[in-house]
């Protein structure tokens, strides 16, 4: 990992005075990063598309024409019509409505799981980097185990064993995707803890918790933004993958993944494309947008990284 890119910000009164110029510089850095992000056209377009998608799924109750679980017996497996814009599935549920509500679920899992994984990763990374020694040793070895072993394999086992619900999926994905965050937070804190403002905090007699939460973590978040963005995309894909295998969000709740599961049936794949093409497009579009935004954020926060 690279050196921290922004200057440390401290909020204790004494330290604040000493670091007033530093804080102004940090603000300037933030503004520069924002300007760099706005200049990245692909990232901005992706952000706009994603915003529209999020709005559409949140506004589902307003723009949907049927309830997602409502069955229209006269129109089963119906192709797109004036009545059902995107057609219906085999039991006669409106695809358009399921697409919107499924998006809600997919995005919810994406954001929720990322929240969980970022929390776990930040706590473990902070403990590891701040205390070093055997705490660091234990946490990093555990991280190694989770990094070497393909986590989706464990997720499959967990998903099959635990009671099935959207929240189980959020928990499973979050609980097994924190390794990257933990490593970044740890490496940032390893270098931050050696700086003078932390020494100042210690001299003022602040407790470890206060130093970590109030003085160190705010400086780490900048380097986490890009990671978190990518994590959302990967969590959305993981949910879709688990649901595609029939081990994710349980029906009748729709998600893009379990709508896509229909395509595993060769008859649907061949003859009823309106059932699986829309969720596939939404999924790919969303993840592309998230990845473009992540690229933009990374370039804006740390312009030296080019890939």
């Amino acid at each position: 990992m690279t050196e921290p890119t922004q200057r440390p910000r401290a909020s204790a009164p004494v330290v604040q005075m000493q670091n007033a110029t530093d804080r102004r510089a940090a603000k300037r850095d933030d503004k520069r990063a924002l300007r760099r992000f706005i200049r990245n056209r692909a990232a901005v377009v992706a952000l706009v598309i994603l915003a529209v998608l999020v709005l559409a799924t949140v506004a589902a109750p307003l723009i949907q024409r049927y309830q997602y679980e409502q069955i229209d017996l006269r129109a089963r497996s119906s192709p797109p019509t004036a009545e059902h814009w995107f057609g219906t599935d085999r039991v006669g549920r409106d695809i358009w409505s399921r697409l919107l509500n499924g998006g809600q679920v997919s995005l919810l899992v994406g954001f929720g799981a990322t929240l969980v994984s970022t929390l776990i990763g930040t706590v473990l990374g902070a403990l590891s980097g701040y205390y070093r020694g055997w705490v660091d040793m234990v946490i990093m070895r555990v991280t190694d185990v989770f990094m070497t072993f393909p986590s989706i394999i464990i997720m499959l086992t967990l998903a099959a064993m635990l009671p099935r619900s959207v929240w189980t999926i959020v928990f499973i994905i979050g609980a097994l995707s924190w390794t990257g965050t933990a490593r970044v937070v740890r490496s940032q804190i390893l270098s931050l803890r050696e700086q003078e403002f932390i020494l100042a905090c210690r001299a003022l007699g602040y407790g470890d918790a206060r130093i970590i939460i109030v003085h160190i973590l705010p400086n780490v978040f900048g380097s986490l933004v890009a990671l978190v963005t990518f994590a959302i995309g990967s969590a959305i894909l993981t949910e879709a993958g688990l649901s595609f295998l029939g081990l994710g969000v349980p029906p009748p709740t729709p998600s893009w993944g379990n709508m896509l599961e229909a395509a595993r049936n060769l008859d649907i794949l061949r003859n009823l494309p309106w059932m699986w093409v829309p969720p596939a497009i939404m999924l790919v579009l969303t993840v592309l947008c998230v990845n473009f935004i992540g690229d933009g954020v990374r370039d804006a926060v740390d312009p030296r990284m080019v890939l």
């Binding site: 993958g241 794949l269 999924l283 993840v287």
Partner: peptide, 9 residues
């Protein structure tokens, strides 16, 4: 960006 199950189908 495209997951293997979408590419696959």
């Amino acid at each position: 960006s495209i997951p293997s199950f979408v590419a696959g189908i």
